[in-house]
């Protein structure tokens, strides 16, 4: 899986990297922020940026590389975002977005300050927020209640309280390699989402959702921000690898290759057993009943 990568890199660089990588990892455990391989919670999605665009006042508004670009929400949307937040979110997350419930409400609501724009837009765009059922152990995906522009506006305001990363990603999948993505998916994601991406029940009433219907940018957002019980994949997956995975998810998982006929919902042996016994054996038993004697 790495062979194509290494073929492109000159040998010297490669061997240098072999020596350097463990050292970097070591250094990373000592001082995480110095190391591009080991990103912290707040700057996930920033490593290896070859494109960095700043505005006049020097703040980064866009960064990334040829695999994924991350775009910061415009600060012009701050006021609109604040209004929307007060209307839709403050009742639970508090008027400071710090998770302290507003007057008259109670319960534990997460602190949103410093989570970065991609986290905010992911939870709104996927229809999880504003929460429909506060008692639910895990917010479910659904129809988004707000438009994506409104989501960006809210992200802009929350981010203005304490800037964080990652910004809102746009993957460029034509540069991604689906075969590497397949291997990385099996290694990193299949343990929760299943190898066919159907999702399944996890412990304590949580579940890993199906990936069959998620747009590419939300797959990147999920990987980079780690919603709910999903781990946040930061330094251990490069932007190239995230794009590879995203390409695999949006092509092979969402449009599986079923040369063998009906895919049986990707449920594997459970569905196969049903079909084999009910359809196969069942039909044959009916045939027995048909041609045999019924005394």
């Amino acid at each position: 899986m790495n062979s194509s990568l290494f073929r492109r890199v000159p040998l010297i660089v490669a061997s240098g990297a072999f020596v350097a990588a463990p050292l970097l990892l070591f250094a990373g455990s000592a001082n995480a922020s110095n190391n591009i391989l080991q990103t912290t919670r707040k700057n996930a999605g920033t490593p290896n940026s070859t494109i960095v665009v700043k505005n006049k006042s020097g703040t980064v508004i866009k960064y990334g590389n040829k695999y994924i670009t991350y775009k910061a929400p415009s600060s012009k949307l701050d006021t609109l975002g604040q209004a929307l937040f007060m209307e839709n979110c403050a009742s639970c997350h508090g008027s400071e977005a710090d998770g302290v419930p507003a007057n008259g409400t109670n319960g534990a609501y997460p602190d949103l300050v410093g989570l970065g724009p991609a986290t905010i837009t992911f939870w709104i765009d996927s229809g999880r927020m504003p929460a429909k059922n506060v008692a639910a152990i895990q917010a479910r995906r659904g129809q988004p209640a707000l438009t994506s522009t409104q989501a960006v506006a809210i992200a802009a305001w929350v981010n203005s309280l304490l800037p964080g990363y990652p910004d809102i990603p746009t993957p460029h999948l034509k540069n991604a390699n689906v075969a590497d993505g397949a291997a990385l998916f099996a290694l990193n994601c299949a343990s929760c989402h299943t190898i066919e991406g159907d999702g399944d029940a996890l412990a304590a009433s949580t579940f890993s959702p199906s990936l069959r219907n998620i747009p590419a940018f939300q797959v990147v957002e999920a990987i980079r921000t780690g919603p709910g019980n999903m781990p946040r994949f930061t330094g251990n997956l490069s932007d190239q690898q995230v794009a590879d995975i995203t390409k695999y998810v949006t092509t092979e998982i969402q449009h599986p290759n079923n040369p063998g006929g009906f895919g049986l919902g990707g449920l594997g042996p459970v569905a196969e057993g049903f079909v084999g016994l009910l359809v196969g054996l069942g039909l044959l038993m009916l045939v027995c009943y048909w041609i045999g004697d019924r005394s």
């Binding site: 099996a186 299949a190 929760c192 299943t194 190898i195 079923n258 006929g261 084999g276």
Partner: peptide, 26 residues
Amino acid sequence: FAQINPIWQFGPYDAARISYAVQPDW
């Protein structure tokens, strides 16, 4: 007409990889 055991969707075995929701044949 009915696909069974699509190993191309599973990929090769590797002790480091695991898929959730694995069932044996019935």
